[in-house]
Amino acid sequence: MTEDKHIKEQKIVDQLSGTFQNLTGKVKRERRVEVSVEKKLIPSVLSYVKDQLTFTHMSHMSCVDWLEDEHFELVYILWSPELKVQLLVKTLINRENPVIENVDMIWGQLNTYQREIREMYGIQFTGLEGREEFVLEDWDEMPPMRRDFDTAEYIKDVFFERPGRDGAKDVREVIATRSGEEIPELAKKYSRD
């Protein structure tokens, strides 16, 4: 990852860190640039890169739950059709009070992404419009994509247990014992007991 190999990528990082304070950026590889900013800078950084740096295409927006570090990481993934560079804008928000500004006026489809993240992680986007329910229906538990949501516990309460899963036994083994058949050698081999 030498400097001379990624000139246009480095130029983007330089321009961004020159414009915004507290912005750290690096070139990850060819055509991949990553910057980290404070959460209050997100709207201005996004509109800057869209208008000035030709990152007109919004590829993706993601969220990672760092439970241990007590923050969520939001990632805005942008693409410049002219420079052919993928830009990842990252920001951290507090896990206790997950609020960030809504930016769907910059890219309309961000509305969908933010609604999904709101539903899945419980992050509030101030001023975000749109239906409260996106994917889930009548969900009254903790937002399911948070890492402290235990699906195994949840399904025990709500759904019927999958037979054969009790006691972490192998399915074939359980079925075989139930019907009184001989347990095949193959099954014994994989038994977890």
Binding site: T151, I155, R165
Partner: peptide, 18 residues
């Protein structure tokens, strides 16, 4: 039949004939 590979998913039912 038994939830298949989604046996531990929070959003799918496991045993249809219930």
């Amino acid at each position: 039949i038994n939830g298949g590979m989604y046996w531990d998913s929070y959003n799918t039912i496991k045993l249809l004939d219930k």
